[in-house]
Design a protein around this nucleic acid. Structure first.
Lengths: 167, 167
DNA sequence: CGAAAGTACATGACATGTCACCCAATGCGG
DNA sequence: CCGCATTGGGTGACATGTCATGTACTTTCG
């Protein structure tokens, strides 16, 4: 099903994934008192206009089930990192919003995390491989978006018949 | 801390990681009734001589805490996928061993999973990028092994003073 | 041999994630 | 406006993961 080269590449990906995820968790927990999931949420919000996102959009972006997000936001909200606010556009919907404390936690966590990423990821990487790596990852990302079960983030995905370029 | 190029590459990695992990979970669960953690364990055992590994070695290989592995093996053992057997070399130690049912589950799960990997990962990837991608991942893996907190898998790590090439 | 320190796992309490199911708002048909 | 399918979230029971701690075995050193 896979060529030998593909298999080796896949195994390399899995090895990196398993180890690096473990180490990231540890680094964030130790340096900043945040779990990796916490950080994923804070980052997604911090990168968004107004530091707020509707729950479904946020969940899609970070690849979570909505119920998981719901539970997790409840816990983060207890810790004062985020707030829930009713959406202004859809009265069913809820937005997650960064609180000042959340913004501060994100700002404090980012530098040590960036240092970690440099040490663990980029310092061992031949600079000539940076561009191909990035392109490869972007191609894979596009592939996952196209063939995956989650909706594509960032646009409403209205499914208007006859519209769009995907047909 | 990171160059713009590094940042984009890192974000691409995280996006792929989040989405792909989600989709892998789904695929395995749906097609084979296994969770991704189940599959990680089965794979590691299947790749090992005698389809058995000492717990600490197994945990290190897949980037888990030992207690997590202990709990998880208890559950997998209840389902008949693995067995615990006392190690032959160290009476403190326990080996995890694949049962026939575990071997069968692994064998059954592998083809659909390989198909999934091809579809989600390799089919969208420019073949010219395969080799650089693999090399890049291997370099990162090496980096994580060198600078991470987990011991390097595959050798006992005896820490004999004056031995070894690590300086 | 025997005490002390280190290593390999197990376990129980608790944190987190998943699944099935709930209700409220929307939107579309009459 | 009403009825009903759809969508956005929340919730409780249960599966899974983490942390602190306990017990058994091994090693070291006298």
């Amino acid at each position: 099903m896979l060529t030998a080269d593909q298999q080796e590449t896949w195994f390399a990906y899995m090895r990196v994934l398993l180890r690096l995820t473990y180490e990231m968790n540890r680094q964030l927990q130790t340096d900043s008192g945040l779990s990796l999931p916490d950080f994923d949420v804070l980052n997604a919000l911090g990168d968004s206009p107004g530091e707020r996102l509707q729950l479904t959009e946020l969940a899609t972006r970070i690849g979570w089930e909505r119920s998981r997000l719901s539970h997790h936001l409840a816990r983060m909200s207890d810790r004062g990192l985020v707030e829930r606010a009713p959406s202004t556009t859809d009265r069913r919907a809820t937005d997650a919003v960064l609180t000042p404390a959340g913004r501060a936690a994100l700002a404090a966590a980012t530098p040590p995390h960036a240092a970690f990423v440099r040490t663990m990821f980029f310092d061992g990487l031949d600079p000539a491989l940076l561009a191909p790596l990035r392109t490869a990852l972007e191609q894979v990302h596009e592939q996952v978006l196209t063939h995956g079960t989650l909706p594509r983030p960032g646009r409403p995905q209205r499914r208007l018949p006859g519209l769009g370029t995907d047909g």
